[in-house]
Design a protein around this nucleic acid. Structure first.
Length: 577
RNA sequence: GCGCCCUUAGCUCAGUUGGAUAGAGCAACGGUUUUCUAAACCGUGGGUCGGAGGUUCGAAUCCUUCAGGGCGCGCCA
């Protein structure tokens, strides 16, 4: 039940028909014909730009064309009350009550499925997100991509697509060696009272490593910690496992569960990197060459070196990218290319990576590699979540891993809660930076848009309590034959946009549109509610403690959409607040 | 130097594959509670959509260019 799609099709059919009779010319591509809700100052219900689209090819002015279309449309569509033609050439349609009755009956019948796309174009998506280094707990910076990835997955699933959620564990390379060393020294600190070196650059300073060390000691009583070299492989695995335990519990606390954690180490050990590189060599995407120093780099420090390079410039990157380090071990990129080959072999239609802003420079080379491996453009889509700018005590707060000085997801959840965290992180376009004022969110959590939407739902629940009905039960309506007020229709117009919101969020991979929509719908409902203070006939419950079917339908449709939307966002809808 | 992202009201931001008089919240000011939840509502003020060109019937949206801010730029992941 997407009235915009329905009317877009109707109008296309109509002009195709008029075209058949030779009365108008039409362009080949009719996609730019839009159906929308007109701005507030027009009282009409929907509007279309079709006349303006057709005016050029017909060499007539849009107003005349609009008149022609108006007459034809009026003939074939019985649910239209009135058609206005406005200034440049908009055709504004006002529906009869029967239209809104049928519409809202459809909405009620679809229940929590309303908004889900009805198209048959079901795809499978492979969604990689979070993928933070397994060297400690998640911090606030990871949170945004985590939430938007999770909600994106929910939206795609809601549209009946298949979605696989994966976390890539970077458990190979120098960072992990340093991390393992840190754990080792914390173990030494525990069992031999050796003080932990505080100022050593490559060691992790975080206190959480003490707990990791304790856990490892406890669970591995027979392990001998005398020599780092002897146990480093074993210790790496143990340390990473401890980290992942922490990360999984962090994620769980914000309501995120991945389908799989894929280890980088496993991919390297399976020789998948070599195999993938061989494949690329065979297809001439890899060669031995040198990389020039970037402008602005100190030319004296730069050592040119012959190395294995991937031809990402063939795909629009600014330079070719190194696959091997000077010690012949693989670069991070090489491993990641192999990982993407591994993903491709799992046969999904589309791959999505949610990345942090600091990895934006990485997008070209990785999409290039996927294009080289799969031979398809746009097989991999990377979405970047811009930075979360933290503000503490009114000042920008720089998190530093080195100092162990950062706000973790745990801190955030315990201060503001899971629901508020998810809603705030999602409430803005991921293209824009967020100012996250930690103190403000703590103090003034009531100003949070989350509560505004939840309050809307709670108010509806309160009405249901008063009339002794269960909000989750289906309502029984004899006949949809209501005479809706203009305020009712304002709410229904918004409800009619819900499938559109989902469609765009899904298509553009922009989950932030959902909380924005829910806020707007709630706002209309709160206005509606407050009308009851002045005018008793606008209240939901009448003086004899009854509720009309008409009002029941409004409450039910709004609450269903809010519930559906909040489920997608992954936050609760309390019955009482 | 190069690449990507951003610039919309005093502040934080929405803005539908280009549509009509650009919208919210916060902050300011004024009002609304014997009433289904005031965590709400109503009203007032507040804008060269960073600047300049261009494409178009029509631009905050697309293109070019300039300015400002952020992120990144071979063996970190």
């Amino acid at each position: 039940m997407n009235i915009f799609q329905i009317y877009q099709k109707k109008i296309k059919d109509l002009i195709l028909n008029i075209n058949k009779n030779g009365k108008i010319e039409i362009p080949e591509n009719l996609d730019s014909i839009g159906v929308d809700i007109p701005p507030n100052q027009f009282k009409s219900h929907i509007s279309t730009n079709v006349a303006m689209i057709l005016s050029k090819i017909n060499k007539t002015n849009p107003m005349d064309l609009a008149k022609k279309i108006k007459t034809e449309l009026g003939k074939v569509d019985q649910s239209i009350e009135k058609i206005d033609i406005v200034k440049p050439g908009f055709i504004n349609i006002t529906f009869k009550n029967i239209f809104w009755n049928q519409f809202i009956q459809g909405v009620i019948n679809e229940k929590y499925e309303y908004g889900s796309s009805s198209s048959n174009n079901k795809k499978s998506y492979f969604l990689e997100f979070v993928s933070a280094n397994p060297t400690g707990p998640l911090h606030v910076g990871h949170c945004r991509g985590a939430v938007s990835g999770d909600v994106l997955a929910n939206i795609l699933k809601f549209n009946k697509h298949k979605v696989h959620k994966e976390y890539y564990v970077n458990d190979y390379g120098n960072q992990i060696i340093n991390f393992t060393k840190s754990v080792y020294l914390r173990i030494k600190e525990q069992i031999e009272n050796k003080p932990y070196p505080k100022d050593q650059e490559d060691l992790y300073p975080g206190e959480y490593i003490i707990q990791i060390a304790k856990n490892i000691i406890n669970d591995n009583k027979d392990l001998n910690f005398d020599s780092f070299d002897k146990i480093s492989d074993k210790l790496t695995i143990l340390s990473v496992n401890e980290s992942i335990k922490i990360i999984k519990s962090n994620l769980e606390n914000i309501g995120i569960v991945h389908d799989k954690f894929q280890s980088e180490r496993e991919i390297v050990n399976n020789n998948e990197v070599q195999k993938t590189i061989d494949k690329l060599i065979k297809n001439k995407f890899v060669y031995n060459g040198k990389i020039k120093a970037p402008e602005g780099e100190d030319k004296n420090k730069w050592v040119e070196r012959e190395q294995l390079l991937f031809r990402s410039t063939d795909f629009g990157d600014d330079k070719d990218r190194a696959l091997q380090k000077s010690d012949n071990s693989w670069t991070y990129f090489a491993g990641d290319v192999a990982y993407h080959e591994n993903k491709l072999n799992r046969n999904y239609d589309t791959y999505i990576n949610i990345l942090g802003a600091d990895h934006a420079g990485y997008i070209k080379r990785i999409t290039a590699s996927v294009e080289a491996l799969s031979g398809e453009k746009n097989k991999l889509i990377c979405k970047v979540s811009q930075l979360v700018k933290l503000i503490k005590d009114g000042k920008p707060f720089k998190m530093s891993k080195r100092k162990g000085d950062y706000i973790t997801v745990e801190d955030l959840i315990s201060e503001v809660g899971k629901d508020a965290t998810r809603f705030i992180m999602l409430n803005r376009s991921s293209d824009a930076e967020i100012d996250f004022d930690f103190d403000k969110v703590k103090e003034k959590s009531k100003d949070n848009p989350l509560y505004y939407v939840q309050y809307c739902y709670a108010r509806i629940c309160s009405v249901f309590r008063h009339i002794n009905k269960d909000i989750n039960e289906e309502i029984k309506i004899e006949k949809y034959n209501f005479n809706f007020s203009s305020e009712d229709i304002d709410v229904y117009k918004k409800i009619s946009e819900w499938p559109k919101c989902i469609e765009i969020s899904s298509k553009k991979l922009e989950p932030h549109r959902v909380p924005t929509y829910l806020y707007e719908l709630s706002s209309l409902f709160h206005s509606y509610w407050n009308m009851g203070k002045e005018d008793k006939t606008k209240r939901f419950i009448s003086e004899d403690k009854k509720i009309s079917d008409e009002k029941l339908v409004l409450l039910k449709s709004v609450s269903n959409v809010i519930k559906t939307g909040m489920n997608l966002v992954g936050v609760s809808t309390p019955d009482k607040m």
